[in-house]
C-alpha cells in the first residue's frame, strides 16, 4: 500500500518534472510573456544549438515590468545565463536541497549532451511527496473547522 519514501535514492525524474518550454534567444520579451500566459506557466528555457543557454522566469518578468523596461528587446539580453541545473540521475533530495539553498523554484534537468529534458519544480516535488501519503491529504474536508466531531449517524 504505502511504499518507503527515500529522498536520496529516488530520481528527480519521478517527481513530475514539467515539460520544458523552449524559445529562441532572439524572441522578444513581449512574445515570451504572451507565450507564458498562453501556456499558463512561469518559466521558459532559452536554447542555443541544442544547449541550454539561459532561463527566463516570472521573477525576471516582474523585475522588467517594475522597471518599465523595453519589452521589445530580445530575451537573451535579460535571461539568467547558465542557470543552476540538475543531471538526469540526480535524486529528489538533491533537487530539494539545491532549491532551498539557492532559493530556486525550478531547476532544468539536463539529459546527455546538455540538452534539457525537463524542469523540476516545487509543485512537482510536492505532488510527488503527497503521493506517498494520499489518505492524509486528499481526504481532508475543504474547511478545517468543518470536520465533524462525531461519526455520521452515531
Amino acid at each position: 500500500m504505502s511504499f518507503q519514501l527515500s529522498l536520496s535514492t529516488e530520481s528527480v525524474t519521478a517527481a513530475y518534472p514539467d515539460e520544458p518550454l523552449f524559445v529562441a534567444p532572439d524572441a522578444t520579451v513581449s512574445e515570451v510573456l504572451r507565450l507564458l500566459k498562453a501556456q499558463k506557466t512561469g518559466h521558459v528555457l532559452i536554447c542555443e544549438e541544442g544547449r541550454l543557454a539561459g532561463i527566463f522566469t516570472e521573477r525576471d518578468a516582474l523585475r522588467l515590468m517594475a522597471a518599465q523596461q523595453d519589452l521589445d528587446q530580445p530575451v537573451s539580453q535579460v535571461m539568467s545565463r547558465d542557470p543552476v541545473s540538475l543531471e538526469e540521475g540526480a535524486s529528489v533530495g538533491e533537487a530539494i536541497s539545491t532549491m532551498s539553498e539557492g532559493g530556486y523554484r525550478q531547476l532544468p534537468i539536463l539529459g546527455p549532451g546538455g540538452t534539457p529534458t525537463g524542469l523540476a519544480t516545487v509543485y512537482g516535488i510536492v505532488h510527488y511527496l503527497v503521493d506517498h501519503f494520499p489518505q492524509t491529504i486528499y481526504t481532508l474536508p475543504p474547511d478545517p473547522s468543518s470536520a465533524p466531531s462525531e461519526r455520521e449517524g452515531a
Binding site: 513581449s30 510573456l33 504572451r34 507564458l36 521573477r59
Partner: peptide, 17 residues
C-alpha cells in the same frame, strides 16, 4: 502575486501602471 502580474498585466503593463 507574480502570476497575477504575468496573467493580467503581461506585455500591456504600461496601460495598467
Amino acid at each position: 502575486t507574480e502570476r497575477d502580474a504575468l496573467c493580467r498585466l503581461n506585455a500591456d503593463v504600461a496601460q495598467f501602471a
